[in-house]
Amino acid sequence: MSAARVGIREFRAGLADFVDDDAPVAVTRHGRTVGYFIPVKDDRTAETATLRAAGEKLDKLLALADSEVDTLVEDFKERRRAAR
Score class of each variant (00 low, 15 high):
M1P: 08
A3L: 00
V6F: 00
V6G: 00
I8Y: 02
I8A: 06
I8T: 06
I8V: 14
R9V: 09
R9W: 10
E10G: 10
F11W: 03
A13L: 01
G14Y: 00
G14E: 06
G14A: 07
L15Y: 05
D17Y: 07
D17F: 09
D17P: 05
D17T: 11
F18A: 01
F18S: 00
V19I: 14
V19D: 00
D20Q: 15
D20T: 09
D20S: 15
D20C: 09
D22T: 09
A23W: 01
A23K: 01
A23D: 03
A26E: 01
A26I: 00
V27R: 00
T28D: 08
R29W: 08
H30M: 13
G31A: 04
R32T: 08
R32V: 11
V34Y: 00
G35N: 02
Y36N: 06
P39R: 03
P39F: 04
V40H: 10
R44M: 12
T45R: 14
E47F: 07
E47G: 07
E47N: 09
T48P: 03
T48A: 15
A49Y: 02
T50E: 15
T50F: 13
T50A: 15
L51I: 07
R52F: 11
R52N: 13
A54N: 10
G55L: 12
E56M: 04
L58R: 04
L58I: 14
D59A: 15
L61V: 11
L62G: 07
L64P: 07
L64Q: 13
L64E: 13
D66R: 07
D66H: 05
S67A: 13
E68I: 03
L72P: 05
E74Y: 06
E74I: 02
D75E: 14
F76I: 14
F76E: 11
K77C: 07
E78I: 04
R79E: 05
R80D: 03
R80S: 03
R80H: 01
R84Q: 11
